[in-house]
């Protein structure tokens, strides 16, 4: 007899899902960075950019990050694909990071009220970082 619990019986709540999300998003960010680096090399970064610039691009594929380099034509670096990649990275990373802050706060704050305040603040923070970030990505 195989012992497997149905979904409702596993204790899958916010904490558990976010625990799992934190791991998955870590892997996803590795994916984003690799895509960013490969993309940069395909678009000719080998000749026109130093390593630091490639890294900066890989961590956030925003065209402002390559403006100061020797890239002749910035257009391919600012197309919708890269803006989507950047948006994805932004959202995943900010969720990962903001939840990390919540985790640290939860270690020290145990009263339900304190925890709810932190959660509220974290949502405000996440939304504002997201909105500001998206604004920068899509208008740059």
């Amino acid at each position: 007899m195989k012992r497997t619990l149905p979904i409702s019986k596993r204790g899958l709540n916010f904490e558990t899902i976010m625990w799992f999300f934190t791991r998955l998003s870590a892997l996803a960010m590795y994916g984003f960075i690799i895509i960013g680096m490969i993309g940069a090399l395909v678009m000719g970064a080998r000749m026109n950019m130093n390593f630091a610039d490639v890294m900066r691009w890989a961590f956030m594929s925003n065209s402002t990050h390559v403006q100061s380099t020797n890239i002749p034509d910035i257009a391919p670096w600012a197309n919708a694909f890269w803006r989507l990649v950047a948006s994805g990275f932004l959202l995943v990373a900010s969720a990962h990071g903001v939840h990390g802050l919540v985790v640290i706060a939860d270690d020290y704050l145990v009263k339900p009220l304190q925890r709810n305040v932190v959660r509220l603040l974290s949502i405000v923070m996440l939304v504002s970082i997201g909105l500001i970030g998206l604004y920068v990505i899509w208008t740059a």
Binding site: R3, L5, K9, R10, G11, L12, N13, E15, T16, M18, W19, V103, D106, D107, V110, R115
Partner: peptide, 19 residues
Amino acid sequence: SASERLHILSETSGIARCH
């Protein structure tokens, strides 16, 4: 009673605090 225990573990002061 695995399910009951997993639900207790999943509370905020539970297993999520293991780093």
